[in-house]
Nucleic acid binder design. Structure first.
Lengths: 323, 323
DNA sequence: TTGAAAGCGATACCAG
DNA sequence: CTGGTATCGCTTTCAA
């Protein structure tokens, strides 16, 4: 393994000059540059990343903190890794599995200079504690957080939900039910607000049993159909879902019960995943990949102290066979 | 930011002794240890990771190289990250998106000491070229490779495919088609062998157009149904798939075409991912998480020069509604 | 049990 | 345009 010192000795120049060549400094004569470059190639030289990191005080590495990688995070992860790498940054994955201690590792790693910045998804530690790590480097969150020092790149779910509501109402459905996600998350609260505002605006009927929370999976979607459309109570003729999985469950169970879709029942998913495409489910497209880009650029801004451009995010509705 | 030097000065001991405390060396008196530890806590000291890496010549970081993270890789990624972290190693993601140049970055990063080792999935560069990086650190591959210096942790796909074939044949299907993956990969070759051996054994019909290669995605699965079941040619009544994604595509397109599953068509996926569970697709369970563990332990063995134990792997078939 | 000093392999400021 | 040298923060002999 050759190092900068050897290159300097062999070329007859100083380490400083060799370093300049390495960093493409303009203050090196072409002749010198050529000579040094040749020797580097001869010796098959590459600079040591750790030495650079130590010297510069930064690693060009960003940590991504999450409970675990799942299907929903996939586009976020891929987009983030890709964007970061385009700017010369590597991405390190920290999964906590819900263990606060393990999660804290990532934050400690920023403190000990192993990563320059952190992007977090869902976190299990106390918010104030996490916020206290902001002094060691920039942190951005994907999901919305109630902490001023940690910015979020998630979109306001209110608008997205509005889009779905608007759509079914335009198509003539008036009895609208909801399968919401996490009971007390900010996402769910926004969606509930959107629903209430919209129902009020169009003076549409609202029944308490038309709104469920804690519905995430296919199974729960199927179950919901039985509960919502099986009884003698007021039945909805449209359901908006927390995600495409739930929508998939609803569609398959409804078909099993001889309900015609979309005539008897309209179903709108969320996220517009492959699954929605595959099963032909109308879905609200959530530009997750762009949010990841924004997350990176936000970090980069803080890292370099320069304002980076942000993607403009927009929901859109992808209509398919279920509405 | 305090450093080791300050701790030494303040405590009245040398840097060497402080370092010993940090590394839990037994050759420090309890009194000294306590005193130094106290000062560290007072100053809120944490060692600088880069300095350690530079000094020790290793980073405790392992790179994972892949074209992109997809559903199939998810359990591998999660398991690898988890296992590595249990042993004090971080995982860095390198996605190439199919670009050989970007892929090479990961290997160059090992050369420049940013990662201690590499675990690779599918690679797009010339094998010989990749093999030449073995001198910079250990490399293991998930998928099987025809390169002696790069070990693989994948299971023999022959046995797994046999399991799927055996299953559909037992259930009375005789006209069996295949959606294979990468045309010239060892996985595909093993599966083709399994298919041919099995068809010969049971004297079942084989048509060239029943075997496709290069089928990985949902879309391609859908497309396959149109090609295979749309024409007037001999139609299969069972399809074995490269992975669950393909199976999902086949199932949804077949349903769209009013084919009854499993009566008219049996579908068997591979890997038994969440998706297979979700959509109720029969699938060959491939212990991917265990393979990731093995990958890490294999790397650790080479890194530490000690033999690490390997998990014993076994396929099994998970029957669901598509057979 | 402890200390002094030589690495590890770059960067960067100050002169010239 | 080039060189000398301090610096980044820790590890690791070698002595004592």
């Amino acid at each position: 393994m050759s190092n900068l010192d050897q290159i300097a000795k062999l070329s007859g120049f100083s380490k400083a000059t060799v370093s300049r060549v390495l960093n493409h400094s303009p203050h090196v004569s072409q002749a010198t540059r050529d000579k040094i470059t040749n020797i580097m190639e001869e010796l098959d030289y590459v600079p040591n990343g750790n030495a650079i990191s130590l010297s510069k005080g930064q690693t060009q590495q960003i940590g991504m903190v999450t409970e675990g990688i799942n299907e929903v995070m996939l586009p976020f992860l891929n987009s983030f890794v890709e964007t970061a790498s385009q700017h010369g940054y590597q991405t390190i994955i920290y999964t906590s599995g819900g263990d606060p201690q393990k999660e804290l590792q990532a934050f400690e790693d920023m403190r000990r200079k192993r990563v320059d910045a952190l992007v977090i998804s869902t976190c299990v530690n106390d918010l104030a504690l996490l916020g206290s790590y902001c002094k060691y480097g920039p942190i951005v969150s994907w999901q919305r957080m109630e902490l001023p020092e940690i910015a979020s790149v998630a979109m306001n779910q209110y608008d997205g939900y509005m889009l779905g509501l608007e759509h079914v109402i335009q198509r003539g459905y008036t009895r609208i039910a909801n399968a919401f996600g996490r009971p007390s998350s900010m996402n769910t609260l926004s969606r509930i607000n959107a629903y209430e505002d919209m129902m009020r605006k169009y003076e549409l009927p609202v029944y308490p049993h038309w709104s469920r929370t804690g519905v995430y999976s296919i199974r729960q979607g199927e179950q919901l159909v039985r509960e919502l459309l099986g009884g003698a109570e007021e039945r909805p003729n449209a359901i908006l879902c927390a995600n495409d999985l739930v929508a998939a469950g609803i569609v398959s169970e409804a078909r099993r019960q001889q309900l015609r879709i979309p005539e008897d029942l309209a179903v709108v998913g969320f996220d517009n995943t492959e699954l929605a495409h595959t099963l032909g489910i109308t879905s609200v497209y959530n530009p997750i990949a762009d949010q990841a880009k924004n997350a990176f650029h936000l970090l980069l801004s803080k890292l370099k102290g320069v304002e980076e451009e942000q993607q403009i995010l927009q929901y859109c509705l992808v209509q398919r066979a279920t509405t």
